[in-house]
Amino acid sequence: MNIFRFLGDISHLSAIIILLLKIWKSRSCAGISGKSQLLFAIVFTTRYLDLFTNFISFYNTSMKVVYVASSYATVWMIYSKFKATYDGNHDTFRVEFLIVPTAILSFLVNHDFTPLEILWTFSIYLESVAILPQLFMVSKTGEAETITSHYLFALGIYRTLYLFNWIWRYQFEEFFDLIAIVAGLVQTVLYCDFFYLYITKVLKGKKLSLPA
């Protein structure tokens, strides 16, 4: 494992933990898109089915288990435990516009036409756009809490670091997975606008707010 891959995983893990703690400590999921979190739970579930078929390493298995478990915990907090604080009125992105096209695409463009492989491909495509309901919610309300901004930054930079990891792996291991690379590029591009706001506002101590 190279340094970019490792830092990517750490930042992904940090994002998940930041979100869990934010909701748990404040007893509120205000400003968080339940739809994005639901999509991430679907992403992890469909991608990590190989937990039952393949063993790669202790690291690999434990990270997958943590990702899956925490995504379900987050969804549970939003839709059950702290339901009263969930801002459903602003979480209006139509997720079928993400799920249906990515599902169709995963049947058309995949490495192998088998159930596990198609589900893995679907999860890669869906992950690349799963943050859109959250970004839509931020743009709709025009602001995000600083802790939510940190969450979004950690989550965005994770796939960006994976891009460097793939350049590294292509260079030194002649390994590349075009499906993951193209989806990772799409995913990173979606965050660019947010990265700009994060660097110019949040890192300077200001709250993230969009011009009206």
Partner: peptide, 10 residues
């Protein structure tokens, strides 16, 4: 047939 890439990433 080409092997599908190893899923060692997360």
């Amino acid at each position: 047939e080409e092997e599908t890439p190893l899923k060692d990433e997360l």
